[in-house]
Design a protein around this nucleic acid. Structure first.
Lengths: 252, 252
DNA sequence: GCCGCCATACTTGTATGGTAGTCGACCAGT
DNA sequence: ACTGGTCGACTACCATACAAGTATGGCGGC
């Protein structure tokens, strides 16, 4: 794991260590850099990041609240596996909130809003062309956030974002599917055009099928990467890795 | 503040100190026992609860994440004032999720579900008769949770519950309004009957107007208790209480 | 060889110490 | 009387130490 250069330097910019660690860890989990099932030791992580256990621990508590890690007292903390139940729940939440926002957005959008959204579309097409998955993800996030913002319900985005985190780990695996990015950006464009035209019903329908595209692929993804999923609804007790004895874990 | 009897005894029942402190504080904030604007000191609270600062601090971080307290580094932690923006956001979230769930519930409800809901209605009427506001609140919470559960989206309830926390502080103040509890339970009954009849559109309409009843009263409530609200969208820096010099704060 | 016990090295939970920063009251100088 | 500077008390943040509990590897008895 990278030693997080400049962590202490960034602290001067208003955010404290806890928030920095939280963001860094969250990013690594959602991006699958830390795979579901991976053990996270407060001690090791603190040593790797060059901070004490306290901010690391506090970050993990927040991540546990988001459902991204499972903490088993006196046993260990593990990146949560993708749970069928959580994915379904996140899908429901996201769908309900984004669709409700869109319904309020129609008729309230300014030309400026449309222009902004179209600029994002262009950037997405560019990312697709370059097969830049990381960039595409960032732009996708921004697109949906902006879409909610134009309805005046932008302050509800963090809730969607948190639910989305559960989905994004699966989404990350679905992007290599054939022409997935192209399909997604096409749907984005359709939504914007219908929104611009003020066609509420069809815009809603387009958004709904867009949101369900990845969800419908989850089972395929699960077949490809079963080890990242959990069969149980309740978190399952993972086994600790054995025989670390030989190698040193720290690269210091 | 009460010394939280039996806190350590409860620890043996699986939950750790952090969770207990978290729940206790949350309850006190939502019930307005701790009024918006009240300063919360890690040191004092830990001493009062008879635990160390660590679990208290971790609880406060979680509460800050929920928007129930505002933490100003090196200045203090304060029960957040009710913000117009947060209330509107919570209302949007709750409305979108509960209505979406209800739409999925129609046609899927069993007789058992209807019977359970009706039992809750009876209990609510009883609480109304006795003017038992605390009991009514508990039953209201349980009713809406159950309503979401019958749709199969019960796992999304925690999100609603968290949004509701922002609303509940205002709701708490609205209950003394004339016949408020009677009106609410009447609407509950209407929803259940329309759900039982399978009338999707009217059930949705009834739920929507039910959810908006309190929201529409927020401005009245604000006029009565302006000190509990914040004019700013962003959290405002509260002033520390002055001239404590004379008396000792601890009753030990 | 197989099973059960035990020591040990880990884990998270909790308690406490030390630091930097902010506020508010007090006091000197105008 | 009023303003500016200083000082003290308080804050949350971070680091560290201790405690309680668990899983695992090895050993002894069978």
């Amino acid at each position: 794991m990278a030693p997080v250069e400049g962590l202490h330097a960034a602290r001067s910019r208003g955010r404290n260590t806890r928030q920095l660690v939280h963001e860094a860890l969250r990013s690594r989990i959602v991006s699958l850099e830390l795979e579901p099932g991976t053990a996270i030791s407060e001690n090791d992580l603190a040593a790797e990041l060059g901070v004490s256990r306290t901010p690391v621990r506090e970050s993990l508590i927040l991540l546990a609240d988001e459902g991204l890690v499972d903490i088993y007292p006196q046993m260990g903390t593990f990146v949560s596996r993708i749970r069928e139940r959580d994915v379904a729940s996140a899908q429901f939440i996201r769908e309900a909130l984004e669709r409700a926002a869109l319904r309020d957005a129609v008729g309230r959008t300014t030309e400026r809003d449309i222009a902004d959204l179209k600029a994002l579309l262009a950037a997405q097409e560019e990312a697709d062309r370059r097969t830049d998955r990381e960039g595409f993800f960032r732009l996708d996030e921004e697109f949906h956030a902006r879409l909610m913002a134009v309805s005046g319900h932008g302050s509800a985005w963090p809730v969607v974002s948190q639910a989305k985190a559960q989905l994004d780990r699966a989404r990350r695996l679905s992007l290599p599917l054939t022409a997935q990015m192209t399909r997604l950006v096409g749907q984005h464009r359709e939504i914007v055009e219908l929104l611009e035209a003020g066609d509420l019903d069809r815009a809603d329908e387009a958004l709904c099928s867009h949101l369900r595209l990845v969800f419908s692929d989850v089972e395929k993804i699960r077949a490809r990467h079963p080890e990242l999923f959990s069969d149980q609804d309740a978190p399952v007790r993972p086994r600790r890795e054995t025989a670390r004895r030989g190698g040193s874990r720290r690269e210091t």
